[in-house]
């Protein structure tokens, strides 16, 4: 599992992904950690197949007992089917996930971890002095969906929005936006069901000060590529399967 520090300030953001030992028939996914002095939040901790390499990678940054929080943007298996394993590994942790998915996500096993349901209008996660905002992103693509915005680091972890279907070992960051478009077009057209939801999200996100847009699959957008992505997504017709 590769590890890339994408922000270092009063706290850190670390991206995990491109696991070389991942079975070939499962989609590659990006996991993120927000590390403060004594706590660690894992965003989109991943599928059960990825648990061991992910946990092993996290142990380079935090001890198990300081992994106090998990976040799942929505209910998909590549996002959080590892929940039952984290549940047995962590003795004092919370899972922040959409309220509407609680009884569904508990199928993965959630006995010792406290489920903190995120209401439809969003909320915050407080990690020592860091306050992260939970931005509603419903129907992008899941009916109950949130993204995580860090105003201090100016990072938006955007779940499936901004994702791309890439060849194994793709670079961590978008290097040429125009060339990157074709890697993400079908994903957004097919997985995102609602133009109305897309517009509402873009309007909300344009008001945020974002340096890094970090999706759950594919490459991370930096600087001007964030605005380029929002403009491109704004113009894209989604929900093409009907």
């Amino acid at each position: 599992m590769k590890m890339t520090k994408i922000y270092e300030g009063t706290h850190q953001w670390i991206m995990f992904g491109r696991d070389e030992n991942k079975p070939v028939n499962i989609i590659d996914s990006n996991q993120y950690a927000v590390r403060t002095a004594n706590r660690c939040l894992l965003l989109e901790p991943g599928g059960s197949e990825l648990f061991a390499p992910m946990m092993a990678a996290v142990l380079h940054h935090a001890p198990v007992e300081q992994i106090t929080d998990l976040f799942a943007s929505h209910q998909d298996p590549d996002v959080i089917s590892s929940l039952g394993l984290w549940d047995q590994a962590l003795s004092n942790a919370k899972l922040h996930a959409p309220a509407i998915w609680e009884s569904f996500l508990r199928h993965f096993g959630c006995e010792s971890i406290e489920y903190v349901p995120i209401p439809d209008n969003g909320g915050t996660i407080k990690l020592e002095s860091v306050e992260l905002q939970l931005i509603p992103a419903h129907y992008l693509h899941s009916s109950g969906n949130f993204h995580v915005y860090d105003p201090q680091a100016r990072i938006l972890m955007s779940g499936d929005v901004g994702s791309a279907l890439e060849a194994p070992g793709a670079p961590m960051f978008v290097e040429n936006f125009d060339l990157h478009i074709e890697k993400m077009r079908y994903f957004h057209q097919r997985w995102m069901p609602s133009n109305q939801a897309k517009r509402a999200w873009i309007e909300r996100v344009r008001n945020l000060d974002i340096d890094i847009l970090a999706p759950q699959h594919g490459r991370i957008f930096k600087g001007n590529d964030v605005k380029r992505f929002l403009d491109w997504f704004d113009a894209l017709q989604v929900g093409i399967a009907v």
Partner: peptide, 20 residues
């Protein structure tokens, strides 16, 4: 968990995996 211990043997916090 056994696999984690094996993969993470060089990680600074590998030891913290022992209690789980």
């Amino acid at each position: 968990f056994e696999l984690v211990v094996k993969i993470a043997k060089d990680a600074p916090y590998a030891q913290s995996m022992q209690p789980p």
